[in-house]
């Protein structure tokens, strides 16, 4: 064990191949400091969950070195597992009531009875599960099941919490409440490794973010660093008074792409959203397009890049 290391997680040249041909994780290197909230973003199949499964000792890496809390997961899995919490992407619960799920978990983690009772009540309240406490877990809705999974994991103390898409199916208020709670725990020293498809969540909670694509980490940094790095990127939204046609927008898109002015152009009903750098030139193109096809312009909106824009640029330009 390496004591006094500033990193709770240290990964170097990690490779994982399931079939010996394609690498699900392809030579990634990153580290997560104690108390940091680190976001792993990427499309489905980017390698995020495989990375988490290696870090949580479920699967062994093909090559590379991994260090979690000073231990090698292959050699000392139990030492790591005693100090981590994991909310897996896949559904997992016991076939009993919501409160029994929490009770069982408390026993498994050796939480004293009174403390377990208090924590259970607090979490049922926090996750708005009080009304369904006597409902069997498999009868819950998708969002409620996910809430139960997160609540159950927070029954015990831990040094690192691994969250693999923990807010799927939850409403925005609950998502924000969970993120705030996790943020509070991180402020008191807990390290968090977080994967999500909701980029605004990562923007809201993560200290640092890595974007993965095809098993590789493409970019890494704070949210503002990434926005600055891919800076200059701005989004122009033009809304017409009536629905636009896809072929018209394709014509605009082609023109922008040929002139290398835009990273993406999307039609959403009456609105065309264009992400690009030289926004004045983009605007000229858009106005030319509007004169040709749009009777009345309802609004033109210009805004700075979001993490979504960074993500799209990074993933599309791999």
């Amino acid at each position: 064990m390496i004591s006094g290391s500033p990193d709770a997680i240290a990964v170097k040249n990690l490779v994982k191949s399931y079939d010996g041909k394609k690498n699900a994780v392809d030579d990634i290197t990153f580290s997560v400091r104690h108390g940091e909230i680190y976001g792993l973003l990427g499309k489905n199949g980017a390698g995020k969950s495989t990375t988490i499964k290696i870090l949580t000792t479920l699967i062994d890496p093909t090559s590379g070195s991994v260090n979690v809390l000073g231990y090698n997961p292959e050699k000392h899995p139990l030492q790591i597992k005693k100090r981590i919490g994991v909310v897996q992407q896949a559904e997992s619960f016991d076939f009993t009531t919501v409160e029994n799920n929490l009770k069982v978990y408390a026993t498994l983690w050796e939480i004293p009875r009174e403390e377990a009772k208090a924590r259970s009540e607090e979490l049922l309240e926090l996750f708005e599960l009080t009304e369904v406490r006597r409902t069997r877990a498999f009868e819950l809705s998708g969002g409620q099941k996910k809430k139960l999974q997160v609540a159950r994991e927070l029954m015990h103390d831990m040094d690192i919490l691994f969250l693999d898409e923990p807010t799927v199916g939850m409403d925005p208020i609950m998502r924000r409440r969970i993120l705030d709670n996790i943020g509070k725990r991180a402020a008191s020293g807990m390290t968090v490794l977080f994967t999500t498809h909701f980029l605004e969540e990562a923007d809201y909670i993560c200290d640092r973010i890595a974007i993965m694509s095809n098993g590789k980490i493409k970019v890494e940094g704070t949210s503002s660093e990434l926005k600055a790095k891919y800076g200059g990127l701005r989004t122009l939204e033009i809304t017409a008074s009536e629905d636009l046609k896809q072929e018209q927008v394709l014509e605009l898109k082609e023109g922008l792409f040929n002139a290398n002015l835009a990273q993406d152009a999307v039609l959403e009903g009456k609105t065309v959203k264009i992400i690009g750098r030289e926004i004045t030139k983009v605007l000229e193109e858009v106005l030319r397009f509007a004169r040709k096809y749009v009777k009345n312009i309802e609004s033109i909106n210009l805004r700075d890049a979001t993490l979504d824009d960074v993500f799209i640029e990074v993933v599309n330009n791999q």
């Binding site: 949580t56 479920l58 139990l78 005693k82 897996q88 896949a90 997992s92 016991d94 498994l108 983690w109």
Partner: peptide
């Protein structure tokens, strides 16, 4: 139901 993996990432 996912509990096998969930238990084996536990202690």
């Amino acid at each position: 139901w996912g509990m096998f993996e969930q238990l084996l990432v536990g202690p």
